[in-house]
Computed example of a mutant assay.
Amino acid sequence: MKEKLYSAFIGKYGDGGDIRMYFAPGRVNLIGEHTDYNGGHVFPCALTLGTYGVARKRQDSKLRFYSMNFESIGIVESDLNDLVPDKKAGWTNYPKGVLWAFKERGYQMDCGMDVLIYGDIPNGSGLSSSASLEVLTGVMLKDLYGFEVSLPDIALIGQYSENNFNGCNCGIMDQFASAMGKKDHAIFLDTNTLEYEYAPVKLEDAKIVITNSKVKHSLVDSAYNDRRNECERALKELKEVTDIQALGDLTEEEFEKYKEAIKDDVCRRRAKHAVYENQRTIHAEAALKAGNVEQFGKYMNESHVSLRDDYEVSCEEIDVLVELAWKIPGVIGSRITGGGFGGCTVSIVKNEAVDTFIEEVQKGYQEKCHKKAEIYVVDIGDGAHRLS
């Protein structure tokens, strides 16, 4: 892979100079969905799938971007002095947004760069290809320009750029998981404080299986921002009757006590999901730590039902995939993962059931939805880093 990328870079930009290579992973969230902007906990892990970047500094202020995933687009040019969102710039708005956010924080780039990108995360799958690209850009800038910036700060800069440059009101989870991932561990992250701990994912006789519905989602164009606004309205009304700063501050019992303060039924259901999902995530992490994978799977199933019914971010195709998985002996748990409105499911499947899972899910999905599901048995990898 590294030789292929290096050769592609030389082919596009020419030889010579200090050419460096980087990787930032995608992520799958095992449980804790739509809690990250509600002051709750999440439990993601970095994947060995992700985004590769090759870069070299230039002598002028030009920025040149090329993606091997979008070869027909060719090289997209920009300039350090012209960092504004532009629909015509397409995918390059993500790295441009990070450059803009670095400048907003006072980091000054004295020259532009040539960049080649290749990602093996399926586009629009909900495995955080955009966050991976943002974190990759941050690690690239830190290394190329010698900036003193921590990996958690790179995650925050990536989130800031997506919120304010690309217009998606995402939480911190995706960027944090990409920056801070650790092989064979999930990250138990309190999004309110950014306190985190690594939890070993010991699935001795099971695998993590991701199923891509091939229904592409776009968080900016979807109802994602609507969900966030609905939660903010619910929080505002709850603050009138109880002293909280975020929905994640409430237990299930406290929510039931105060929920009538939320006037709108839709906002009440959104808040219920945020509160219950946060508590589910706390209990699920404890179950996994205790080696109770079966209980962890039950929490995953409950999470999907809540995301389907209370948060309403699932879709027909995703529900079909999850229901097919639930019927297969050896499936410990299955749920939608990511922002929703399409994308992927994540399942924990016993080793002896993996082949059956792949066969049955693909067959059933084709029959019911007339689409071919892509299925990946995945490994948990490290966070973003420079490649030697």
Results as ranks from 00 to 15, higher is better:
Glu33Ala: 11
Asn69Phe: 12
Ala46Gly: 15
Phe70Ile: 11
Val84Gln: 12
His41Gln: 04
Lys103Trp: 03
Gly39Phe: 07
Gln108His: 10
Ile19Glu: 05
Leu80Cys: 08
Trp91Phe: 10
Lys88His: 12
Gly112Lys: 00
Asp79Lys: 14
Asp18Gln: 05
Pro85Met: 08
Gly17His: 01
Phe70Met: 15
Cys45Thr: 13
Lys87Thr: 12
Glu33His: 09
Asp36Asn: 08
Ala24His: 00
Arg56Tyr: 08
Gly90Glu: 15
Ala46Phe: 09
Ala101Gln: 15
Leu30Asp: 01
Lys88Arg: 15
Gly106Lys: 06
Gly50Glu: 09
Gly106Met: 06
Ala89Trp: 10
Phe23Pro: 00
Ala101Lys: 14
Phe65Lys: 02
Ala24Arg: 00
Trp100Met: 00
Thr92Cys: 05
Val28Leu: 03
Tyr37Trp: 02
Gly106Leu: 06
Glu33Asp: 12
Thr48Ile: 05
Tyr37Ile: 00
Ile73Ala: 14
Lys57Thr: 07
Leu83Thr: 15
Ala101Trp: 04
Asp36Gln: 07
Phe43Ala: 05
Pro25Ile: 02
Phe23Val: 00
Cys45Glu: 08
Asp86His: 11
Leu47Gln: 09
Lys88Ala: 15
Leu47Trp: 10
Ala101Val: 00
Ile19Thr: 03
Asn81Cys: 08
Thr92Ala: 06
Glu104Trp: 08
Asp36Cys: 07
Gly106Asp: 10
Arg105Trp: 11
Glu77Ala: 10
Asp79Ser: 15
Glu104Asp: 13
Gly112Tyr: 02
Phe102Val: 00
Glu71Leu: 13
Leu49Asp: 12
Arg20Cys: 01
Ile19Trp: 06
Phe23Cys: 00
Phe43Lys: 11
Asn93Val: 12
Phe65Pro: 02
Gly50Thr: 10
Asp60Phe: 11
Phe102Asp: 02
Asn69Gln: 12
Gly112Glu: 04
Met21Val: 03
Met68Tyr: 12
Val54Glu: 15
Gly26Lys: 01
Gly50Arg: 07
Ile31His: 09
Arg56Glu: 09
Asp79Met: 14
Pro95His: 10
Asn38Leu: 02
His41Cys: 08
Gly90Arg: 14
Gly17Asp: 03
Ala89Asp: 14
Ile73His: 07
Arg56Ser: 11
Met109Val: 01
Leu80Gly: 05
Gly32Lys: 13
Lys87Ala: 13
Gln108Arg: 13
Leu83Gly: 15
Leu80Ile: 03
Leu80His: 07
Glu71Phe: 07
Lys103Val: 03
Asp82Leu: 12
Leu83Cys: 15
Asn93Phe: 11
Tyr94Cys: 04
Gly26His: 02
Gly97His: 14
